[in-house]
Design a protein around this nucleic acid. Sequence first.
DNA 1: ATTTTTCTTGACTATTAGATCAAGAACTGC
DNA 2: GCAGTTCTTGATCTAATAGTCAAGAAAAAT
Lengths: 199, 199
Amino acid sequence: MARPKEFDPTSTLDRAMDLFWRQGYEATSLADLERHLGIGRQSLYDTFGNKIDLYRQALDRYSTVPVSYLLSRLEAGGAHAIRGFFHRLIDYQAQANPPACFMVNSAIEVAPRDTQVRSRVTEHLRRLDAGFRTAFERAQAQGYITASGLEDPQAAARLLTCTTLGLLVAAKARVPVDILRQTAEIALVAVGIPSGDYS
Amino acid sequence: MARPKEFDPTSTLDRAMDLFWRQGYEATSLADLERHLGIGRQSLYDTFGNKIDLYRQALDRYSTVPVSYLLSRLEAGGAHAIRGFFHRLIDYQAQANPPACFMVNSAIEVAPRDTQVRSRVTEHLRRLDAGFRTAFERAQAQGYITASGLEDPQAAARLLTCTTLGLLVAAKARVPVDILRQTAEIALVAVGIPSGDYS
DNA sequence: ATTTTTCTTGACTATTAGATCAAGAACTGC
DNA sequence: GCAGTTCTTGATCTAATAGTCAAGAAAAAT
């Protein structure tokens, strides 16, 4: 043991996550990282390895913090939780430069060329799908699913996962937030979760 | 008039489209372009301008060739055409490295930083939505839409557009093609287009 | 207090990127 | 056949990139 780091690696990783999330991998230079993380280049290499290593760790951080937060609420609830999921998802995109989803961005930009990133994206899609399935099953058990909705929880989950991905692409293209909300509402109605106010 | 070009600008642009479509903007270097297009660098600059100009032209080419092909069939048909659209869309992703959709890729990687690309993406989304709306209205008029489906053509179009974007993200993440097909089928059923074999 | 380890700082390197220059080749029109 | 224009080729330029080196600063352990 000797001199301790002057920065907190965890909160620094959070900042790297934010930056990669907003700008993508290639568009983020080491100079950007130094500036935005507030640490020197050598500290960055000592702590996180090289650029792609840092990116992967940022992606893992994304998985364990914002994603886990959203998914835990989804898995714990039913119809109400599914609506809340989309509500929160879209609310976060209501900014001048919507960052969309770090996983979706990675799926397009990095996953095709990086096996490790690709497997993280695959795992993320699996989690999302499972979360929707669980929540939909609970919603069914609670009698919340209307007759015109889908019967198969797996089918509902597939559609909701796909809708989520589509909404995030649209958000990145700056489709107005109220259209995103409408679209989410349509998907909810389509799987059998009737309209209702947000909470 | 003087010496004519030794290459065909149009087919060369097609190759640029393929390359950018598969690899994205940043991951495609000028050396890649020279090699893949089979022309020298100066010819490239003389004919297409700089790299981002070429990218924008490739995107326009994408709009006018493959996209227009798919959309013309969509606008001309009804329920059958909507199913055919997804069929063709997904079939094209059945390769080792699915290229997904040039517009979706652009929406994520380039649109946030390039106004001109962003407006092309926005226009594309509008076209896609309008195509689905037209086809859905015709399907309704032909009595193809089941009672449990959506009534509002605009709502159906929103959901189908969003599903399309989501499917393409999934394709890029190498979600198996049979799952993409299932998901598309679920979306079709959800809007009121009952199962049926492809044509 | 000294030693030892680790961290920080900033200069540095090598490579690659996109873009340009210049000279010679090739074709059209007169 | 000649003049004029355009194309092609390959070398070159400049800026920016990811990554490294080395020296000095700071803290912990003895």
